Amino acid sequence: MIDADSSIYAMVDQASPVNARLADCEPGDVVISTISFAEIALGVQLQEPPPPGVLEAFLEAVPLMPFDEMAAREYARLPFRRARFDRLLAAHALSIAAIVVTNNEADFADVAGLKVENWTR
């Protein structure tokens, strides 16, 4: 489950290591949470990268994963030490046993049981 930061990195830099890793994945192996999509869409509305057409093309390659009841229940169990988007994403990933792909590993370090990978290296 790719987070907003890594998604934006992939969308604005075609030569990024994130894109290299995405290219090695099978369709559907990587998803983006509707939580991360909301964070990116807000940025697009504020005229931050990526451009709207690039976001739509990204969603064709990386499908949206809806935040559902299981994710909401997991969210209710998490401590609130950081930004809410990060807590929501962590809960969503935990609810489906997904790995979070992020460049901000420290933002998720206090979430017990959450697996995190950094594809920017």
Rank of each mutant, 00 (worst) to 15 (best):
I2K: 02
I2H: 02
I2C: 08
I2P: 07
A4E: 01
S6H: 02
I8E: 02
Y9K: 11
A10R: 09
M11W: 08
V12R: 07
D13V: 05
D13F: 14
Q14W: 11
V18L: 07
V18N: 07
V18D: 11
N19C: 14
L22D: 02
A23I: 11
D24Q: 14
C25A: 12
C25V: 09
E26W: 10
P27I: 07
G28C: 03
D29G: 04
V30M: 06
V31G: 09
V31T: 12
I32Q: 02
I32R: 03
I32K: 10
S33N: 00
T34A: 15
I35T: 01
S36C: 00
A38E: 07
E39R: 06
E39G: 06
I40C: 06
L42R: 13
V44S: 03
V44F: 09
Q45D: 14
L46F: 08
L46T: 08
Q47G: 05
E48C: 12
E48W: 09
P50H: 06
P51C: 07
P52Y: 08
V54R: 03
E56Q: 13
A57S: 09
E60K: 15
E60I: 10
A61F: 11
P63E: 11
D68N: 05
D68A: 12
E69G: 12
A71Y: 01
A71C: 02
R73I: 14
E74K: 13
A76I: 06
A76D: 03
R77N: 15
P79G: 09
F80E: 09
R81F: 15
R81T: 13
